[in-house]
Simulated assay, not measured.
Amino acid sequence: MAGHPVAKTVAEAKVSAVDTDVALTGRFVKKINDGSFLFSDGTGELLVHVMGAELDPSLMTADVDLTGMVVQDFMYTEVRAESVSVHN
């Protein structure tokens, strides 16, 4: 999809419209509950929902690449992750 906006930082994601694609690199700061994590990339923090599988513990201590989509939850901007992998 040429021209489709992609947020590349947490700061961009926070001001992006719902359904905007994201491609972020950063760290999980802490686990909120099953499937929900606080994520930071140095430009800010936001809540990330990881669908399906339990997150590999190694991903909690490494820089990660995360792709997904902005979703709105009440007053907060959140991201639904489609893939999470260790950043190379």
Results as ranks from 00 to 15, higher is better:
His4Ser: 09
Leu38Gln: 12
Met51Phe: 15
His87Thr: 05
Met75Arg: 15
Val86Met: 09
Met51Gln: 15
Arg27Leu: 09
Val84Phe: 02
Val64Glu: 02
Phe28Val: 08
Ala17Leu: 14
Gly26Ile: 11
Gly3His: 07
Met69Ala: 07
Glu54Gly: 10
Ala7Glu: 04
Pro5Asp: 05
Ala2Trp: 02
Ala81Gln: 07
Ala23Asp: 15
Thr20Phe: 03
Lys30Leu: 11
Ala81Met: 09
Phe37Pro: 07
Gly44Phe: 06
Thr61Phe: 08
Asp63Tyr: 05
Ala11Gly: 03
Ile32Thr: 07
Asp21Asn: 03
Ser58Glu: 15
Pro57Gly: 06
Val50Phe: 08
Asp34Met: 08
Glu82Asn: 08
Ala62Pro: 10
Gly3Thr: 08
Gly68Gln: 08
Glu45Gly: 01
Ala81Tyr: 11
Asn88Ser: 07
Thr20Ala: 02
Gly52Ala: 12
Met60Tyr: 03
Val86Trp: 03
Asp19Tyr: 13
Leu24Pro: 09
Met69Tyr: 12
Asp73Arg: 14
Ala7Tyr: 02
Asp63Met: 13
Ala2Glu: 12
Asn88Gly: 03
Phe74Cys: 02
Ser36Cys: 12
Val18Thr: 15
Val64Thr: 00
Met60Lys: 07
Val48Arg: 06
Ala17Glu: 15
Met75Ser: 12
Val48Leu: 07
Met69His: 11
Glu78Trp: 01
Ser36Gly: 10
Val79Pro: 06
Ser83Ala: 10
Lys31Ile: 00
Thr67Glu: 11
Val18Lys: 12
Leu24Lys: 11
Ser16Thr: 13
Pro57Ser: 08
Asp41Ala: 02
Ala13Thr: 01
Ala81Trp: 10
Ile32Lys: 09
Ser16His: 09
Glu12Thr: 05
Val79Phe: 05
Leu55Lys: 10
Thr43Lys: 08
Asp21Arg: 09
Ala11Arg: 11
Asp65Trp: 01
Val6Asp: 03
Ser36Met: 13
